[in-house]
Write a protein that binds this DNA or RNA. Structure first.
Length: 278
DNA sequence: AGGGAAGCCTGCGTGC
DNA sequence: TGCACGCAGGCTTCCC
């Protein structure tokens, strides 16, 4: 499940491989995954820059006529962007295949997605705000606009909502998914089911720090490979070795030894320690 | 306002 | 062995 640290890892690893390269052709193997909001471009595209906003990967392009375009990628659950040599046939569940040329050599950037939840949009311009969901995103949790005060306001905006549900609301904070939300709440000692109106200011401050810590640590370990996630070279992350609660229900808490419990918040399986998280 | 469910999807683990 | 079933969950939309 690619969340912010996984998308950031893909961004940096992919940028090292394809920034400055050209997209020579685009092959659609399954319809509806690549959504073109403009068909006026002339190939090849030059790949200018890879950016990220929340869980969205943003790829700035310039076409043959020097007109700007942007590829916006959301991997959802099982989406992957995999770079393959020219002689490698597209793997199963490849839905879009970009032929990428780097200094005379050709390779394929394959969008592979078993469950086909993910989408790729192509828009004119280099401004991701043309995408309505991106326009509505909350602050980047590792950016300067995400302050303890900002998180506190988000929590207070939803007084009757479980605090975990607020963390998963992308219009409040961009980039947290089930894994990092559970881990941040554990680090902060906060019960995921606690209603916003019962969260104290100092707890929001602690949660703010926990979110930043867990995301930075996740990026440092090149993401969490719990089930599907790999970067563009097929390499796994290692943060799964440091998880405290996600995927550990029924196992002992790393802090107090009590058995971790499972509940459901906002439709998602939620793991926590009854003793350490109040 | 918030929760729940449906829909989009396939693979995998489990129980019979 | 094989089959049915539930679960995994990001996001949108709809309904209560």
């Amino acid at each position: 499940m690619p969340e912010l640290p996984e998308v950031e890892t893909i961004r940096t690893s992919l940028a090292a491989l394809v920034a400055g390269a050209s997209i020579m052709s685009i092959e659609r193997l399954f319809p509806g995954i690549l959504i073109e909001k403009s068909e006026t471009y002339v190939l090849p595209f030059r790949i200018e820059k890879l950016r990220r906003r929340g869980k969205y990967l943003l790829i700035d392009l310039t076409d043959h006529n020097q007109n700007p375009f942007i590829l916006i990628v959301h991997l959802r659950m099982t989406g992957k962007l995999l770079l393959h040599d020219a002689d490698v046939p597209p793997p199963a569940h490849t839905h879009v295949r970009f032929a990428v040329g780097t200094s005379g050599k050709t390779a394929y950037l394959d969008y592979v997605d078993v469950r086909r939840f993910g989408r790729i949009w192509l828009f004119p311009g280099h401004d991701e705000h043309v995408h309505p969901t991106i326009r509505a995103l909350g602050p980047e949790p590792l950016g300067e606009w995400f302050t303890p005060e900002r998180l506190w306001q988000s929590i207070k905006r939803h007084p009757n909502q479980a605090v975990k549900a607020t963390l998963l609301t992308q219009t409040e904070i961009a980039g947290l998914g089930n894994i990092y939300a559970d881990e941040a709440l554990f680090l902060a000692g906060l019960r995921p089911t606690r209603k916003g109106k019962h969260v104290r200011k100092y707890e929001a401050v602690r949660l703010h720090q926990a979110i930043r810590d867990v995301l930075a640590l996740g990026i440092g370990h090149r993401g969490t490979s719990f089930r599907d996630y790999v970067n563009s070279l097929g390499q796994q992350g290692s943060f799964q070795q440091l998880l405290h609660v996600y995927g550990r229900s029924g196992q002992p808490c790393h802090t107090c030894g009590q058995t971790l419990e499972t509940t459901r918040v906002a439709g998602r399986t939620t793991r926590y320690c009854r003793h350490c998280q109040r």
